[in-house]
Amino acid sequence: MTHPPADGSPDQGPGREAPPAGGESVDPMFAEVADIVTFIDAPEPDLWIRPSTPPVTIEIVDHDPAWTDHYADLADQVRDSLAPQGSFVGIDHVGSTSVPGLKAKPILDLALVVIDPRDEDDYVPALNSIGLDLTVREPAWYQHRLLKRLDPEPGQLHCNLHVFGPRCAEVARMRLFRDHLRIHPDDRERYQAVKLASAAQSNAAGETVTDYNARKQSVLREIYHHVFASRGWV
C-alpha cells in the first residue's frame, strides 16, 4: 500500500514532480494566487447525472486515523486505473477526513486532477471499473465532475472524488484549507463547531447535504480569509 507523502504534498503522476521550495508555480495542483483568492459561485441547473436521493441524516463522527489508510488504498486504485489512459496528473486527500482531530462525516473527499476533465471518456470508464460513478457535472465551476462510491463493499467508506484540471484554483484552495486547519486549532475548532451546528439544524429541517454545506459557507469563507491573510495575499 502506498501512503501519501508525510509533508502533505499530493500523489502525482510519473514525470510530474512536486515543486521545489519557492517554486509553487510549477505544481499542477497549485494555481495562480489571483485565481485562488477569487471565488467562483456558478450555480447551474440539472447538474445531477444520477437522480438525487432523499435527505438522509447527516452524521458527524470523531476523527478516525484509519481514514488516512482508506485514502491511500483508494488513491492507489484511482492511479492504477488511469495509468493506461495517461490522464492522471495528481490526487490528494482533502476535506475534513484529512484533518486529524476534526470531526467529520465518514465520507472521504479526494481531489483528482486529470489532463482534461471535459474528456470524460478518458477517465470515467476506468473509474467506473473500481466502483466510482459519475454523479454531478459542473462545467461552469472549473469543469468539476463528481464521482461517488455508491455501493461500498464491506470495510470500504463512501467517498466523493472531485475531478478538476491542472492548475485549478479550487484544488489549491482545498489543500490550503486542509493544511491551515491542521496547524491552527482555533480555526479547526471553529469549523468543527459550525459543522456540528449545521448538521443539527439541517437534520431537524429535513434538509440535504447541499443545504448543510450552505449553512457552513460564511464561516468557511472567513477561515479562507485567514488563510489568505496569513500568506499576505489579501
Rank of each mutant, 00 (worst) to 15 (best):
M1K: 10
T2E: 15
A6N: 14
D7A: 06
D7V: 07
P10K: 01
D11A: 09
Q12H: 09
G13C: 14
G13T: 11
P14V: 04
G15V: 08
R16M: 12
P19G: 11
G22M: 06
E24N: 08
S25A: 15
V26K: 12
D27I: 06
D27V: 06
P28F: 02
M29Q: 04
A34L: 12
V37Q: 02
T38P: 14
F39K: 12
I40S: 14
I40A: 09
L47R: 13
W48N: 14
I49F: 09
I49V: 11
R50H: 14
S52H: 14
T53N: 13
T53I: 13
P55C: 08
P55R: 02
T57S: 12
T57Y: 10
I58R: 06
E59K: 11
H63R: 07
A66K: 08
D69P: 09
Y71Q: 02
D73H: 09
L74R: 00
D76C: 13
S81W: 00
L82E: 00
A83T: 12
S87P: 08
S87L: 04
F88I: 00
S96V: 10
T97Q: 08
V99F: 08
A104Y: 01
P106W: 05
L108M: 06
L110V: 03
A111H: 04
L112T: 04
L112N: 01
V114C: 05
V114E: 00
D116L: 12
P117Q: 05
R118Q: 13
D119F: 05
E120H: 08
D121M: 14
D121V: 08
V124T: 06
G131V: 02
L132D: 01
L134Y: 02
R137P: 07
W141D: 04
W141K: 09
H144T: 09
L146P: 03
R149Q: 09
L150R: 11
D151K: 15
P152H: 07
E153S: 13
P154T: 05
P154G: 09
G155F: 07
C159T: 11
C159E: 05
N160R: 10
L161D: 00
H162V: 08
V163Y: 03
G165C: 14
G165K: 07
G165Q: 07
P166T: 05
R167E: 13
C168G: 06
A169L: 01
R173E: 01
M174Q: 14
M174L: 10
R175M: 10
R178Y: 07
R178D: 05
L181G: 03
I183M: 13
H184F: 06
H184E: 10
P185F: 03
D186T: 11
R188V: 02
E189L: 11
A193W: 10
L196A: 14
S198M: 05
A204L: 06
A204P: 03
A204C: 05
A205T: 02
V209R: 15
V209S: 15
Y212V: 04
Y212W: 08
R215I: 06
K216G: 06
K216M: 09
K216V: 08
S218Y: 13
S218G: 12
L220I: 11
R221H: 10
E222N: 14
I223L: 04
I223W: 00
Y224C: 05
V227T: 05
F228A: 04
F228P: 01
A229M: 15
S230G: 15
G232I: 01
W233E: 04
V234G: 11
V234L: 11
